[in-house]
Amino acid sequence: MTDSSLQTWLDQHGLVLSVLWDPLDRSRLLEGLGLTLGMALTCGVASLLIGALGVAAQHSPRPWLRGLVNGYVALWRSTPLLVQLFFLYFGVGALLPLTVGEDGSPVRLLGGTGWAMIAIALYSGAFQVEALRAGIDAVPQGIREAAAALGLQGPALWRHILLPLALRNSLPALGNNLVQTLKATSVAYAVAAPELLYAANRIWADRFNVGEMMQVLLVTWLLLIGTCSWLLGRLEARLQLPGREAANGR
């Protein structure tokens, strides 16, 4: 079926699904989807890195470092993501110097997409710190003592023993936080980052097809979240600690 015949059939049924027959609308939606996936991947990796560094700092012998991380976790977990994004974009962003755009006009040093990624990574990282902390607390004391007997301590103990075990202990919580990170990318719409929701908004503003685009958004997000959850479930099953399944079955 050609684009024109598809358009005619959809019009006959009262459906303005221009993303199916209009190349421009389709490309705008796909570009928004690509940015959403790119943001989710970047923020997910960054949040895991923040979580690993944060939980290591929580076990530091330096009180000021532990207090700094605990304060960050408490602040970022206790305030809405949208408020954090506005604070960074309008508050911190206003303090940065402007640069000159291609047309000679002043532009922000960091745009909405960049600030959205920073806000989402910091927000998700706070939850990953707590997930990894619980995973480390679940590492048996006997394993720590055995590692110490073998001469492992300090960074080597964290790199080879504690963090690998904590990651596997925390996989369900970490996976849930990564799914939340994917969903959190939609707040970037508030600062005009051209992600999936923003792209859909541009389309329905031109086509006056809010109902149809809302259905497209719902189906797209269901597919994204479903695929992400399935992949994380497979990863969790593959990396499950030996004996955990038997213990859960008792």
Rank of each mutant, 00 (worst) to 15 (best):
W64V: 12
W64R: 03
R66V: 06
G67F: 06
A74T: 11
W76T: 10
W76F: 14
S78L: 05
S78W: 06
T79F: 03
L81K: 00
L82E: 11
V83P: 01
F87G: 03
L88P: 03
L88N: 05
A94K: 03
L95C: 14
L98V: 14
L98Q: 14
V100R: 07
V100F: 05
V100P: 05
G101V: 01
E102Y: 09
V107N: 12
L110I: 08
L110R: 00
L110F: 07
G111R: 07
W115S: 01
M117W: 08
I118D: 13
A119V: 00
Q128F: 06
V129N: 13
V129R: 05
A131F: 08
L132G: 15
L132T: 14
R133E: 13
G135L: 06
E145M: 12
E145Q: 15
E145K: 07
A147G: 02
A148I: 15
L152R: 04
L152I: 07
P155W: 04
L157P: 13
W158S: 15
H160M: 14
H160A: 14
L165I: 02
R168N: 13
N169I: 05
S170W: 00
L171V: 09
P172N: 13
P172V: 11
N177Y: 10
N177T: 11
L178N: 11
V179N: 15
L182R: 02
L182M: 11
A184S: 07
A184V: 01
S186Y: 05
V187Q: 09
V187W: 09
Y189R: 00
E195D: 10
I203P: 07
